[in-house]
């Protein structure tokens, strides 16, 4: 059993839940940018939630299945077509040998996930099947998918007709509130700079990919000072340090960047806050133009939000098990 890529769509790659333990040498976790949606796609087709799926941004791929399989499409809202006929998202669907899955235009969100019963069986590299394109490894030959690629699929036994109710699907909106924990190098901002960060409605620019999401909308003011030795001359520079996933850096004080799952692991720009783990999927489903506000929360609230997300995950898992 295999999935043939008839047309790759945009920036489509193989992802699972990512790898751990190599960030200290600059290798990021990678994995699905919307972990909830990729996990649910797997549950729908009877896979382990950590199985490898196809992730595609903005434009869906065109796939052909060499044998009968059960598939599910989750993530952003994008009409799915099986041999040209509409099929629902967030529902497991049986596909016949030779059937083709294609997509219409994106209607909401940014990324879709296609899971196949058995999971995509690309080689495991450093503990994961996720593609890390900057490092040219993982996934399918370490790169985004191209027409003509043939992805092997493991053995699975999914059931068609299982679905996820509306209330357990992510809300997709062009107006997004992201909860952030302030800190890191935020002491470098003036009071006015911090107020600008929190009071501005930021707009996601087209510079938004698996590495990071860049926003426009204002200029942050930094405290004037003589820069510490080795930091570099710009007031937004620091002695190069590690970047948390979800951290927000603001080079030159303009255009905040939220780092995501293919994050650069470190560098010399001051980070002023970090998006909480429960809201990272929300960033991943933001498309250019999304109006975004940063809402500061204490660590306790970040942990509470994490527990809520975990409870929701348990709920969908029980429903589909």
């Amino acid at each position: 059993m295999a999935v043939e890529i008839v047309a790759p769509g945009l920036a489509a790659s193989v992802q699972d839940r990512g790898r751990t333990g190599y960030y200290d040498v600059g290798i990021p976790p990678s994995g699905a940018v919307d972990l909830y949606s990729s996990g649910v796609a797997n549950l729908l087709v009877g896979n382990d939630p950590g199985a490898a799926v196809v992730e595609a941004a903005y434009m869906g791929p065109h796939l052909r299945f060499t044998e009968r399989a059960v598939v599910a499409v989750t993530g952003g809202r994008m009409p799915a077509l099986l041999d040209g006929e509409p099929v629902p998202q967030w529902e497991s669907v049986e596909v016949a040998a030779g059937a083709e899955l294609s997509f219409g235009y994106l209607e909401a969100g940014a990324r879709i996930y296609v899971a196949v019963s058995g999971g995509l069986d690309v080689p495991v590299v450093l503990g994961s099947r996720s593609t890390y394109t900057l490092g040219s490894f993982g996934g399918f030959e370490g790169r985004v998918l191209r027409a003509g690629d043939v992805l092997p699929v493991g053995t699975g036994s999914g059931t068609a007709g299982r679905s996820v109710p509306e209330e357990l699907r992510p809300a997709l909106s062009k107006d997004v509130d992201l909860r952030v924990v302030l800190g890191l190098y935020d002491y470098r901002l003036t009071e006015r700079g911090l107020a600008t960060l929190l009071d501005t409605t930021w707009t996601l620019t087209p510079v938004a990919d698996r590495i990071g999401f860049r926003y426009s909308g204002g200029t942050l003011e930094w405290q004037d000072r003589e820069q510490p030795f080795g930091a570099g001359s710009d007031l937004s520079n620091i002695v190069d340090a590690g970047y948390p996933l979800g951290s927000i850096q603001v080079p030159g004080g303009v255009e905040p960047i939220i780092l995501h799952r293919d994050a650069v692991s470190g560098g010399g720009y001051a980070m002023v806050a970090t998006v909480i783990s429960a809201d990272l999927d929300l960033v991943g489903q933001s498309s250019p133009g999304t109006r975004t506000r940063f809402r500061p929360v204490p660590l306790e609230e970040a942990l509470a939000a994490r527990h809520e997300a975990a409870a929701r995950w348990r709920q969908v898992r029980e429903l589909l098990s």
Binding site: G230, V239, A278
Partner: peptide, 15 residues
């Protein structure tokens, strides 16, 4: 704290 999954310890601002 870098969100709920990271701790950053800055020993010094200068190298």
């Amino acid at each position: 704290w870098g969100g709920d999954e990271h701790l950053v310890v800055q020993l010094d601002e200068a190298m």
